[in-house]
């Protein structure tokens, strides 16, 4: 056993520092306040205000909110009884103007001060002559008309390509055409997608949508080339909207006709322009060889995307009345009428 130390363990200069009453009360109050506060937010039932309680584990899971985009359609003028205008013959600006005049002229549809979004097809890194992307000449001419004739506030051009966006927009000539005419290109990034709610759609009732460029937009115009497509037979005006989808969109090949008809109700554009200047007749939708392309010299401006695509399938691709299944499905979903008889006006 060790003997007791001679000196006290405590240092002789040690002084007790007693807490005064005020400090004690203040500390107790602080501790109680903090304790009660954290106790409340963590233990109070979930429906009480400020409660952070999550009993099931579902409350803390992030559920993205579905957004909606408005209907961009504009009623046609009273004296116009046609839904699809076809322009033929002449230079590209002339053909475009003819097709627009056939349905009442662009100025009826685009009003001064509008923000207009144009969706060309820029899916691949190809030069314009190969027919895989929208003819930039039409785009440039259209942006000019929107900004100069219709005095719109802003024109945005956007697409979510399969290949590198920067390259696709550059090589297809779409960026140059847009910037030359005074429009603005918006390239997709991780940030640009929101869930879109499309009532009535079978596959994409809630699906990732290229939403960012749509903020504050008043009018939407699609410009689509006419292309052969192995799986869905033809890619035209409606299929063009595929380029606004995000997420794992390559799954949709498992039911391609359903998705294309869903696209026709996902967005209700002001008008769709079908570019029949360079028609990709085979090896679509990528093309890659000039021999796959036919010069069509035709442009369609349509308010009824279904009738428009049916006409293009029959007359531009020359494949008769055996339309792709998605057109009938789109008609059933109420986005247009397949029978175009009497609703087409051709100006040559």
């Amino acid at each position: 056993m060790a003997s007791k130390p001679d000196k006290p363990i405590q240092h002789p200069e040690y002084e007790k520092a007693p807490m005064d009453r005020r400090t004690l009360f203040r500390r107790i109050a602080t501790a109680t306040g903090l304790g009660a506060g954290t106790g409340y937010v963590s233990l109070a039932p979930a429906n009480w205000p400020l409660s952070l309680r999550d009993n099931s584990g579902h409350r803390s899971q992030h559920v993205p909110e579905s957004k909606a985009i408005p209907d961009f359609r504009v009623a046609k003028p009273d004296n116009i009884h046609w839904d699809v205008g076809i322009g033929r013959g002449g230079s590209v600006p002339q053909i475009l103007r003819k097709s627009l005049d056939a349905i009442g002229g662009l100025q009826h549809y685009i009003k001064p001060g509008d923000i207009v979004l144009i969706k060309p097809n820029v899916a691949f890194d190809r030069s314009p002559a190969l027919g895989a992307t929208t003819n930039p000449e039409i785009l440039e001419c259209l942006i000019n008309m929107i900004l100069v004739d219709c005095r719109a506030q802003e024109v945005r051009v956007t697409d979510n390509p399969i290949e590198s966006p920067a390259d696709c927009f550059a090589k297809s000539g779409v960026r140059r055409a847009t910037e030359k005419a005074g429009g603005r290109v918006y390239l997709p990034d991780t940030n640009a997608f929101r869930l879109l709610h499309t009532p009535g759609a079978k596959l994409i009732e809630h699906w990732w949508f290229f939403h960012r460029p749509f903020s504050n937009v008043d009018k939407v115009i699609g410009i689509a080339p006419v292309k052969d497509h192995n799986l869905c037979e033809a890619s035209m005006g409606i299929k063009n909207w595929y380029g606004l989808l995000g997420g794992t969109r390559n799954q949709f090949h498992q039911d391609i006709h359903e998705i294309v008809s869903d696209l026709s109700i996902m967005i209700r554009p002001t008008m769709t322009i079908v570019d029949g200047t360079h028609i990709l007749m085979k090896n679509g939708p990528t093309g890659g060889d000039p021999s796959n392309v036919l010069q069509g010299d035709t442009i369609l401006s349509g308010l009824d995307p279904v009738a428009q695509d049916a006409w293009a399938f029959e007359h531009l691709l020359g494949r008769g009345k055996n339309y792709p299944a998605y057109l009938a499905k789109a008609e059933a979903k109420g986005s247009g009428k397949l029978d175009y008889e009497g609703r087409i006006r051709e100006i040559t």
């Binding site: 497509h229 192995n230 799986l231 390559n250 090949h253 090896n283 990528t286």
Partner: peptide, 19 residues
């Protein structure tokens, strides 16, 4: 199940993936 995304995107002409 129908799919052939691979054939659609194959960039060479004629396509290296055929069906």
């Amino acid at each position: 199940i129908p799919c052939v995304v691979c054939e659609e995107v194959c960039p060479v002409s004629p396509k290296a993936i055929q069906t």
